[in-house]
Amino acid sequence: MAKFLNTSATNYFLEELIKSAKDRLILISPFLRLNERIKELLEDKNRLKIDVRVVYGKSELQPEEINWLRELTYLRTSFCKNLHAKCYLNEELCIITSLNLYEFSQVNNNEMGVLVRRSEDPELYKEAYEEAQRIIRISDEIRISVETVEKEAESSAEGEDSTPDKLTTSKLAQKVGVKTNELIERLVKAGYLEVKEGKNYITAKGKEAGGEFRMSPKFGPYFLWPESFRP
């Protein structure tokens, strides 16, 4: 019999579902911005060579998120237009819920969901699994690459109203010799960026330092910094 889940139970069983996956894992969520705990669990699945499929529906991935995803060999990502469903499955469990795989939602929102066990509700599990497979089939698989984002960002930086001597955050991180996530943490700590509702925003201090906010129609927001900038 399906089990009702409140907010805390949804988060708990989502982690258990990921941890207990031994053969396959399907994560369907319109919004995708993973907290550190979920990232750790997925990295462990990758080390165990578990097949992970992630389907999302909003093209607003941050460059640092893309940089992290591309390092997971056994995680395949697909984009599904008009996606609104939130469904998470492994070979034995299924969660159908209002909860996005978005760290702000997991911390701040009131959510509901139901847990379906294959051993107790095989027909219900089968129907949810088949619908998840259909969503995967109609989705466009993407080999996420931060280089693609950087290339597009650099192309945008060649426009008439921009300066060519600026770097994306990930390129600047390479130049400084740190990981992108580490550089972003430095920028936030130093006051060049601030976090609101799970998203990074450039501050007045960041603009004074020469930072710029840009929006890629395909890959979402990113930032440009002077090549000589050292936070």
Rank of each mutant, 00 (worst) to 15 (best):
M1R: 12
A2W: 07
K22M: 07
D23E: 11
D23N: 08
I28R: 00
L34T: 05
R37P: 01
E40S: 03
L41R: 00
E43Y: 00
V52L: 03
R53V: 04
Y56I: 02
S59P: 01
E60M: 07
Q62M: 15
Q62Y: 12
P63H: 01
I66T: 09
L69V: 08
E71I: 08
R76C: 01
S78G: 12
H84P: 00
A85Y: 02
N90H: 10
E91G: 02
E91Y: 01
C94H: 00
T97E: 11
Y102V: 00
F104C: 08
F104R: 08
N108E: 14
E111Y: 04
V114Q: 02
A128W: 03
E131F: 14
I138N: 05
S139Y: 07
E141W: 07
R143E: 07
K151A: 15
K151R: 11
S156G: 13
S156E: 11
G159E: 09
D165W: 14
T168W: 09
T169K: 03
L172K: 05
A173P: 10
A173S: 11
K175F: 07
V176G: 01
T180D: 13
N181K: 09
E182D: 13
L183F: 08
E185R: 11
Y192S: 07
E194C: 15
V195L: 14
K199M: 12
T203P: 01
T203Q: 02
G206C: 01
K207S: 06
G210Y: 02
F213A: 07
S216H: 06
P217W: 05
K218V: 15
K218F: 15
K218W: 14
P221S: 15
Y222F: 12
F223K: 11
F223I: 13
L224P: 01
S228L: 15
S228C: 15
R230E: 11
P231I: 08
